[in-house]
Design a protein around this nucleic acid. Sequence first.
DNA 1: TGAGAAATATTCGTTTGTTTCATGTTACCG
DNA 2: CGGTAACATGAAACAAACGAATATTTCTCA
Lengths: 314, 314
Amino acid sequence: MSQSHIELRHLRLLQAVAESGGLTAAAERLHLTQSAVSHQLKALEDSLGLPLVERAARPLSLTAAGRRLLTLARTALPQVNAALRDLAKLKDGDAGELRIAVECHTCYDWLMPAMDSYRDVWPGVELDLLGGFQADPVGLLLDQQADLVITSESAPRAGVVYVPLFGFEMLALLPPGHPLASKKELAPADFADHTLITYPVPEDRLDLIRRVLAPAGVKPPRREAQLTVAILQLVASRRGLAALPAWAVAQYLERGYIVARPIGKHGLWAELYAAVRETDAARAFVADFIDTVKRDSFARLPGIRADLAAAQGI
Amino acid sequence: MSQSHIELRHLRLLQAVAESGGLTAAAERLHLTQSAVSHQLKALEDSLGLPLVERAARPLSLTAAGRRLLTLARTALPQVNAALRDLAKLKDGDAGELRIAVECHTCYDWLMPAMDSYRDVWPGVELDLLGGFQADPVGLLLDQQADLVITSESAPRAGVVYVPLFGFEMLALLPPGHPLASKKELAPADFADHTLITYPVPEDRLDLIRRVLAPAGVKPPRREAQLTVAILQLVASRRGLAALPAWAVAQYLERGYIVARPIGKHGLWAELYAAVRETDAARAFVADFIDTVKRDSFARLPGIRADLAAAQGI
DNA sequence: TGAGAAATATTCGTTTGTTTCATGTTACCG
DNA sequence: CGGTAACATGAAACAAACGAATATTTCTCA
């Protein structure tokens, strides 16, 4: 009560600021501008009469008051979300089937945990994972063979909607001590003299080739490996270079097992989408799966961004 | 998450509607118009895609969805209030002294429980209750003898602010089977032939005399009693009539121990205020005491209203 | 069953608050 | 010390909330 008319919006804001470590990053996550976040935070601080974040130094840290409010956010917001889910179940029912096709190999890293937390909340939904390589994953939706596809393409197609999940950076991977490691970022030509180690998928599914090397006319030899760790092992043992999502290799970078460099001046950024049939997009158990994936990913994966447009918007 | 951007405002609204049993009453409690409540509730229902209250019949009842959200409100809102209190303590400190003077005898009925819940939350605040009759209770504030006064007057005085607590109806009390019980409401003249049983305070402190009987020139004989139950006992044993707040006698009415009638066509309504020194009004532990009293009273006392102006505004 | 009273819904204009755009300011990195 | 990235600020656009007036519904009681 008191005088301050605090709202859930403020708690969501504070949580985003705290967890992303800055106003700008928080703004991206909330799909707002940095200005809006700054204004809103200031308004909240004014209405409470207390500063919530320590502005003196970056990275931003919370004051005691900010930490107390963050605690509130962390207890209250999940309760709110749980209630909203219950309402969604009341509205649409709580059972269904969700056959998920995944285009990107590394995606299993975060998809599995996300599916686990989803299952806790929607026990009545049958989750299936479609394995194997698919020539046209999104087509599976229209064939009624899949209900949700994790994909990096977003070419408009009738009856299909794409929900952006997150953007991430593809990093070039080198063995420690490699000559190219002295460069701050790698150019297309740097790949010309090395074997490129990739998952076993066609060239046009590899962002590095399609968007960087092919346009530059660079065609390095390729070698394929099934598993992420296998690719890393090959790089570390100097059999070639690779490019993988930053979040997929973060733990190996920390340990110095390999080193990573951005590709091009601004890095090579990709985005993932969840594609669903238009008719399914509003169904509660489908929409909440996508929400769960997003929430889970932002909590788990380092270095991902909410919006590629903003990330690319140089 | 999901699509609906629910806010605490909505939870507060739903709780007010549920607990006051109607949109109009809820509006009064929230210091909004009935229109605003209707709009906001509708907007919430639309954004959720679910009805929350059963409009078919009055008194309003909640749907399953409404009950789920009410559950959320009842867990989340206290957490929010607790957090705001903690912030207030961070800001102003958590200790102080609160000497409370009470003008109205019956007020102890709700003041004691309110003080108990307040003590749980502000253990560092020393609560004192000033006993005995005071000629000028509000004057005690300026004399620094009291820090907060519960009073029914609100005559502006320099350095003192009055915070409205709630409005309530004074009911005329009759023994069961009394001839006057056949009337729907009592007129001033009806009191002329009966002894008036009151607390031992001067006439000008008795709303019934000051605002109803004296203006009509009616001067019934008086008999005084110290305790509420004593007054009720005297009425029940046909020694005279009395007038007490509706909430103070509700349980006796239910049991048929006495009967009650409104005084005048629209009833005799009174209002209580908390008076504090201007310099104290913004102090967290003072403001929260007043909040606690209000919250507690609305939860406990039947038939009280948030705003006398609205109650009188015929 | 119908009239009156009370409660809720609706329409529309106003106000308030939130967001963005553009730009200024500050802190950090090399 | 630049230069850059991050945060702050002011003005204007925009949207949401609110209130006043009024219509409609529902209840009550005769």
